[in-house]
Design a protein around this nucleic acid. Structure first.
Lengths: 206, 206
DNA sequence: GATAATGATAATCATTATC
DNA sequence: GATAATGATTATCATTATC
């Protein structure tokens, strides 16, 4: 169970996201205007915060900006490194920030629906649906590390249904699916056969 | 995003698990014969390993046994502590084991389908379905920390369906749902209303 | 002898507590 | 905001058991 490095690979695709009923395309090609993505995200964040009387401070904005460097998740430490690298340039004599700076900013962003934590990676990503904290599912490419944020009503419904049978009250569903995005996927690999139908899986068992 | 302590609370319920099509009860009352649970788990593990030519060594067996102390997840460090506490009794002059000992044992157990990692908790739990690694979903009680391991074919299917639309090849789906188990759930709380249908959620947004 | 398992040390990463 | 403690995980290397 070695945890792969987070960003060693060049990425042919990027991932905005899709707001979908049954699910719709969420992996977009590299060619898209990412500067626009970033600007949109920042603008919406300003808007969000204004509406809720929350303060998008300098640090919080910088962290959000770093999250939007691309559509791939980034670890708290990598955020810290980038933050410090930049501030070393901007103000050469300033002290480097410490981890709590980043975690506090991330807490704020997550609380306000501007970012998500991907628990299976210990990494963070900008929210494709600012303001909506719940009900998203993440599809994570093991090869290029691109993430698609999706909202499948049906997945949510089936989780609710299973919970209902258990008598369980759902508070925070985590759905993070690792696999291969269309670009990294070998031409046409066979779908899962051997396992039972509960297994949404492309792997063979040992 | 404070990470709550893992086991501070007494647990009125325990959770074997259910192998379900549409999902079936998986939270069992405290009264069940847990010694039997544990024996079954260990026996099946021996069986599994014999079949696959894998070696269930002393350390691995001990870790598995600790995982089966109850039906609640346990952190790698807590496993380490228990391991060392016991060995301090058994052989007073032995050196305490170091973290890699535990992680290696856990890797083995997970690889052979005898344990699961709950990524949202950084904790581990014995597998209710030895040998089957994929396709399980976990319902985690935030109050008593009991976990129900469930296999809902429908959840798996909907994840597959969403993946298909994306052109995504599923390799390792992670579904971990935090909430309240039947025992800890206040008499009858209202279901989620305000959010869209993708949100299997009992919470209000800020 | 080859392969796999263990022991020991330490580095790094992740997160939280405290002042 | 800064300092520091704790927890989680991985890397490395030497040693030992098992096939």
């Amino acid at each position: 169970m070695p945890m792969r490095a987070l960003f060693p690979v060049p990425h042919p695709f990027r991932s905005p996201s899709a707001d979908t009923g049954g699910a719709s395309p969420a992996f977009l090609p590299v060619g898209h205007d990412h500067a626009q993505c970033r600007r949109d995200a920042l603008d919406k964040a300003e808007e969000q915060c204004r509406q809720h009387g929350a303060r998008l401070t300098d640090i919080r904005r910088k962290v959000l900006d770093i999250l939007w460097d691309d559509h791939r998740p980034i670890s708290a430490y990598d955020i810290l490194h980038r933050l410090n690298a930049q501030s070393a340039i901007d103000s050469p004599h300033s002290k480097p920030a410490a981890p709590p700076v980043v975690y506090r900013a991330l807490d704020f962003l997550i609380t306000h629906g501007l970012a998500h934590k991907l628990t299976s990676l210990n990494a963070f990503i900008g929210s494709a649906h600012p303001g909506r904290q719940h009900g998203a599912q993440f599809f994570i490419c093991r090869s290029c590390h691109t993430v698609a944020e999706v909202r499948s009503a049906r997945i949510g419904q089936e989780i609710s249904a299973a919970a209902a049978v258990l008598g369980f009250e759902v508070q925070a569903p985590v759905v993070e699916v690792e696999g291969l995005c269309p670009a990294c996927r070998p031409a046409h690999s066979a779908p899962c056969a051997g396992h039972d139908s509960a297994c949404a899986c492309g792997q063979s068992e040992p």
